Structures are given as C-alpha cells and as structure tokens.
Computed example of a mutant assay.
Amino acid sequence: MHTFYAADLAGQTYTLPEDESKHAVRVLRLNVGDAVDLLDGRGGLYMATVADANPKRCQLRITHHETVPPRPYFTHVAVAPTKNLDRMEWFVEKAVEIGVERISFLRCARSERRELKLERLEKIAISALKQSGQAWLPQLDELQDYAAFVASVAPETTFIAHLEAGERTDLAQVAGAGPGCCVLIGPEGDFTPGEISLALSRGIRPVTLGASRLRTETAALAAVFTAQIMLAARR
C-alpha cells in the first residue's frame, strides 16, 4: 500500500500537492478506485481511495480514519550537527525509523557546522515516517547555542554523553527511570570541559554509551536506540 503525508488534512477529501500527484499518477500508476494510506504526523492514520487521477491535482477520498496515541514516554536527543550534513541526514532518517519524539541541534564551542537549514532534514524525517509506519512526526528544533539549550531542559531527565575522564553511568541503567529522557551528544571534537561543567552544575548527569569511541551521528543513534529499548521495557 502506498503512503502519503498530509499534514494539513481536513474533511473527507484531500488533494495531493502537484509533485506528489505527478508521482502518484505517472510513477505509481494509481487509478481511480485504488487504495492508499495517508498520515498527518499527529497520530492520524487514514485509508483513502483515488477519486481523480489527475497528475497535477490527484484527489483522494477518505474512507476510514483512526488515531494512534503517542507513546507514554519521550525520547529526545540534542546533537551538535556534523560538518558533513549527509551524516546528520542519515541520523535523522534512522532515528525516526526507530522512534524519537524530538531532535534538537546544538551549536557548541567545537562545532564545525555553525548554521543549519531544517528543510532538507524535515523532508527526510517525513520520508522515514512513511517508510517505517510511524504515526507521529518528531519535532525538529532549529540550531541553538549550547548554553541556552542546557538552561531550558529538565535536569532530572537529561543526560550528557562525553569522553572526558570521570565517573559516568551506562545510559541503559538510567534511561528508563523517568517519563522519558534527553541525551546530549557533542560535536566531533567532543564537548569542552567548560560545557561539561555547565551541564553538571545544572544537575545533568554524565553517561556513557559503551566502550567504543563513536562518531557523533553513531552516538546520537545509539542514544535513541538505548533510550527507546529501556523506556519501553519499563512500561
């Protein structure tokens, strides 16, 4: 079954945007009466049939609707985007497939990427949402300064993964203890000692993701996977 994303869906009919209409009719060869699925990224799942197979404005008629409730916990990863944006695109795709509620992007002292446009990442997130059958599109936050972000989060559910010496707890041991968790992942050169101290001074706890030294995008994905597994297991 072919799936389309329809964030602004309302009523009993929906007209696909022109690019999606062309893809549906010219590439997928959909005809009047063919069944498709729609999702709105807010828990809504819809079954529909093609009412007008126009390659410029393909119209769908809704035949069934159900709402999937959000997960009873949240997974939030805040990561410093890599210089090579392809690696962040890979992370966003895989994180959405696994399941994540929010992804924030941090501008750190050692960040090599100082600016970030979300449009491309949002398209990748939507594509991964459709591919994986998820019902809720995660929130993607604009790039923001590390200090401002740290000041905005709840320390009791936030953890910082860093490579500096010192006592750290395995994320798997603490991720499922609360209603969810937020994990901070630094840039390719890691957080600075000052950034680590700032997080610790606010009550954010240090964690480890294992014995290996991971790339930024790998560490971020490991955090998503670990958090999801532990949070789901303890519900």
Rank of each mutant, 00 (worst) to 15 (best):
F4I: 00
L9P: 03
Q12F: 08
L16T: 07
S21E: 05
S21T: 08
H23L: 10
H23V: 10
R26M: 09
R26Q: 14
L28V: 10
R29T: 01
N31D: 13
V32C: 06
D34A: 06
G43R: 00
L45S: 04
M47A: 14
M47N: 13
A48C: 09
V50H: 04
D52K: 14
C58I: 10
Q59I: 11
L60T: 10
I62Q: 06
H64N: 15
P70H: 03
F74I: 06
A80S: 15
T82A: 04
L85Q: 11
D86S: 12
M88A: 05
E97C: 03
I98H: 02
G99M: 02
V100A: 00
S104I: 02
F105Q: 01
F105L: 07
L106Q: 06
L106D: 04
A109P: 04
A109I: 08
A109M: 09
R110K: 13
R114H: 11
R114I: 05
E122L: 01
A125Y: 02
A128F: 12
L129W: 03
A135Q: 03
W136S: 00
L137W: 00
Q144V: 11
Y146Q: 03
V150C: 12
A151R: 13
A151H: 10
P155F: 09
T157Y: 02
T158M: 09
A161N: 11
H162L: 11
G166Y: 10
G166L: 10
D170P: 14
Q173H: 14
C181K: 09
L184I: 13
L184D: 01
I185D: 02
F191I: 10
P193A: 05
L200Y: 05
S201H: 09
S201W: 04
R205F: 09
T208M: 08
G210C: 12
L214Q: 10
R215L: 07
E217S: 04
T218A: 11
A220Y: 04
L221R: 01
L221E: 01
F225V: 13
A227E: 08
I229C: 14
I229L: 14
